[in-house]
């Protein structure tokens, strides 16, 4: 065992589409930290057949990768993850271990911390200070206060950071890095739960506030556009929402109304079709991550809130978008990466 813990570790997270954004965010943050503390940026890549993720990780600055592949790790069983991660920590003794404050990260961090009696700070905003006097800032009460925390001496320090808070850096070219491939035997008796099946929520019926992508329509869209917008929503796995005008016109039900007198939504992507952007409406969606708006009126107020403004008739535009999505989907099925062509 070495004398001093070293290395900034990031626990990689992935899904069917590859490494998740949270890992790239952590890498972006971790790179700065590693440079300042003069540490090596390492990634723990745990899973089954996840070798394909390595190039991406190196693109975002990973300098060393600990790779553990095991079939039990494929089922997202946190028991297995916790065990393997614990084994790695025992063996390599990192300085900081960063995870996303995602559902699985938030569950893993305290487990590891409890197992080794380590300091653990969840939902951190940033990490400042030098080696001996690290300071971690986290927010509380919905950003109403910020708390600065001194982690006491024991290392590694475990930190989780919420997704969507850091800008992802520009990727470099993939490079060759040291990959330490470990074989860890996972004893069968550590598995305390087993995932049986996944039931996907139906975007047509889930609550609007929880929808990840929303296709919203206003009175400009009219009743006749509903089928095509529903088609778009189905293609994107999105939910349908709408403005008060659309509810008044009976195009959609009240439960699907976005606005100050309806639902306040914060989806990853909101597509506003035929919505002029009354103040009533925009107050309910202004915190959406990305907004694309289609409107025939160039002066429509919704464009002030949109990242992508498309002037034109949605009946012409939306079918093309649907085509592009279908093509992209087919490509992805063939193993290619999805990229929405924003020029369309």
């Amino acid at each position: 065992m070495r004398l001093k813990p070293e290395g900034i570790w990031i626990l990689e997270e992935h899904d069917d589409e590859g490494t998740k954004n949270i890992t790239l965010e952590l890498l972006s943050e971790g790179q700065k930290l590693a440079r300042r503390l003069n540490e090596q940026l390492c990634v723990c890549l745990l899973g089954s057949q996840v070798g394909g993720c390595i190039p991406t990780l190196t693109q975002y600055g990973a300098e060393k990768i600990y790779l553990v592949e095991h079939e039990l790790l494929s089922e997202c069983s946190l028991d297995a993850y916790a065990f393997v991660l614990g084994e790695l920590i025992k063996e390599y003794d990192p300085y900081i271990l960063m995870m996303g404050a995602t559902p699985s990260g938030s569950e893993l961090a305290p487990r590891i911390a409890a197992r080794f009696k380590l300091p653990c700070i969840t939902e951190a905003k940033n990490i400042t200070g030098q080696e001996e006097n690290l300071q971690i800032t986290k927010s509380a009460y919905n950003d109403q206060v910020y708390i600065t925390i001194d982690p006491l001496a024991r290392r590694p320090l475990i930190v989780t950071m919420p997704p969507g808070e850091t800008d992802i850096i520009e990727p470099n070219k993939p490079r060759e890095v040291e990959v330490i491939k470990k074989n860890v035997e996972i004893p069968a008796d550590i598995m305390r739960t087993k995932r049986k099946r996944i039931i996907k929520g139906d975007p047509r019926t889930i609550r609007l506030e929880e929808a990840d992508i929303i296709v919203s329509l206003g009175r400009g869209a009219g009743n006749e556009s509903l089928p095509i917008l529903q088609e778009l929503a189905d293609a994107l796995g999105a939910s349908i929402g709408g403005s008060r005008g659309a509810v008044d016109d009976g195009i959609i039900k009240f439960e699907r109304q976005i606005g100050i007198s309806g639902k306040t939504v914060t989806p990853r992507l909101l597509i506003a079709c035929g919505i002029s952007g009354a103040r009533e409406f925009t107050a309910g969606m202004e915190n959406s991550n990305l907004v694309a708006a289609v409107n025939i009126d160039q002066k429509a107020r919704i464009f002030d809130y949109a990242n992508l403004c498309i002037k034109g008739d949605l009946r012409m535009i939306i079918p093309q978008v649907i085509d592009k999505i279908q093509i992209a989907k087919q490509k992805r099925e063939k193993g290619q990466v999805l990229g929405l062509d924003t020029k369309s």
Binding site: R244, G245, D248, A278, R279, E280, F281, K299
Partner: peptide, 15 residues
């Protein structure tokens, strides 16, 4: 003002 804004828009009198 906010209430009338949506009513004015709804009636197409925005401009």
């Amino acid at each position: 003002e906010i209430m009338f804004d949506s009513a004015v828009k709804q009636k197409g009198l925005e401009y």
